[in-house]
């Protein structure tokens, strides 16, 4: 079957909260999934968790989740988008457990710069600022600033309206500005950059 880019087939018939069938790891299937998606998932886990051991564990956890939901994974218009979202969600949950650390991380980010006149690395700054934002805004921020999806694509992906996505991105920015003014007052975000 061909796929039109503008089509997403939705798997039906499962409520999503029933326990999945028992799953065993078929080696051939696992090798295929590893080849196609492990690098992106591991990259996302390393980025969000900043700890290689935790990232390795998260990588395996994410694939176990994907295998338990294999029909949905297979039916996704973009398997890459689907599994990255699972990875992001999994890591944000772990990240949240340590959210108290973001102030120290932000201060460290300021100190770690090689050249003081340069802002911290863009994605690193986004990652640390996630800790300052409410749960609902975090995923939207990753999809926007890291995956660089448009707001319309994010709305589609999250199953939310465009105004809701915009609101969440604004929440993230407001929290980010506040966090910067408290912990790294020398650094500001550009004005007029409201999503």
């Amino acid at each position: 079957m061909a796929t039109v880019s503008a089509l997403r087939v939705l798997p039906g018939g499962r409520s999503g909260n029933e326990p999945g069938p028992a799953v065993s790891a078929d080696r051939g299937l696992l090798a295929e999934l590893y080849e196609k998606h492990a690098a992106a998932v591991y990259g996302r886990c390393r980025y969000l968790l900043r700890n290689d051991d935790e990232a390795k564990d998260a990588l395996q956890e994410v694939f176990a989740k994907a295998l338990r939901a294999l029909p949905e994974f297979r039916a996704a218009a973009s398997p890459t988008t689907w599994i990255l979202r699972i990875a992001t969600h999994h890591c944000l949950n772990l990240h949240r457990a340590r959210r108290a650390a973001w102030r120290e991380e932000l201060a460290a980010l300021g100190k770690d710069r090689r050249v003081e006149s340069e802002p911290p690395e863009r994605r690193e700054l986004v990652r640390v600022l996630l800790g300052a934002a409410p749960e609902e805004a975090q995923e939207a921020a990753v999809l926007y600033y890291v995956d660089e999806m448009t707001q319309a694509e994010i709305a589609q992906q999250l199953g939310r309206s465009l105004p809701t996505v915009r609101k969440r991105l604004r929440e993230f920015l407001a929290c980010a500005r506040k966090a910067l003014s408290e912990s790294l007052p020398g650094i500001v975000l550009p004005e007029g950059d409201e999503p």
Partner: peptide, 9 residues
């Protein structure tokens, strides 16, 4: 100093 967070181009 202004730090750009990026986003889709």
């Amino acid at each position: 100093m202004i730090a750009d967070l990026g986003g889709p181009g």
